Computed example of a mutant assay.
Amino acid sequence: MNIANHDVAAGSPQDRLARLGIVIPPPPPPIANFLTHVREGNLLFLSGQGPRETDGHLHSGKVGADVSVAEAYAHARLTGINLIAVMQAALGDLRRVKRVIKLLGMVNGIADFADHPSVINGCSDLFIEVFGERGHHARSAVGMASLPGNITVEIEAVISILD
């Protein structure tokens, strides 16, 4: 299937991003000894990203204590934008995204926090807004005792791509 025929009626991912007022930043650099993505065949594996602003600021704190579910949802959405930035850098054209296959969302929550799915919906909702039906995915949303830099969320993804 060629890229031009794969766009859905509502426009390309770039069109949807523009309508949402989202400008894709450069992809965040890795914070340790790993790659931001690895392609194997028609799969693109995206390393975990966090809620990094374009100025480098990382949102941190424990969800359920110093960070509300609504704030953490926004952090997961920002993390989704950073994942899209990695996709854009890896693929050159977001129309090459055939399908978002799987997300793993990790929430830095207090011990009795139980609303992880509502937080990770920030990324899931964004992917559906940007990629339409191709953005629907399998997902895990889990709690962690801590995350690097005490960030609120970390999300990784597996993407199927078109050549």
Rank of each mutant, 00 (worst) to 15 (best):
L126A: 09
L78C: 05
R19F: 14
L35Y: 15
A4F: 12
E129V: 00
H59D: 13
P27V: 03
G109S: 01
E129G: 01
L104H: 14
L35M: 13
N82C: 03
P30L: 05
L126K: 03
G143A: 05
H116W: 03
A9I: 10
E40M: 13
V63K: 02
N150M: 07
Y73S: 00
V97W: 00
S124K: 11
G132S: 06
I151A: 06
V86G: 05
R52I: 15
S124I: 12
G132L: 03
L147A: 00
T36Y: 09
I151T: 10
I159L: 06
P27S: 07
A145I: 15
H137N: 11
I22W: 10
V130F: 00
A145W: 14
V100R: 04
I84E: 05
S140C: 11
S12E: 03
H116L: 04
H75Q: 09
S124C: 08
A4K: 11
E71P: 01
G56H: 01
N42R: 13
F34T: 06
G41V: 03
R99H: 14
A9S: 09
V8P: 04
T36I: 14
S140I: 11
I128M: 08
M87W: 01
D66N: 15
M87R: 00
R99N: 10
P148D: 09
V130Y: 01
L78P: 03
H37Y: 14
I3E: 12
V63P: 07
P13R: 06
H136R: 13
G41L: 04
L126H: 03
M87V: 00
D93L: 01
S160C: 13
P117Q: 02
R134P: 01
N2D: 14
P30S: 07
P51C: 14
V119I: 10
N33C: 08
V97C: 04
I161V: 14
R39K: 12
Q88A: 13
M144N: 05
P117N: 06
G11N: 02
H59N: 13
H37F: 12
I120W: 03
A18N: 11
E71Q: 14
A4H: 08
T79W: 02
P117T: 05
A111F: 14
F127H: 03
A114M: 07
P148L: 03
I151M: 13
P25M: 05
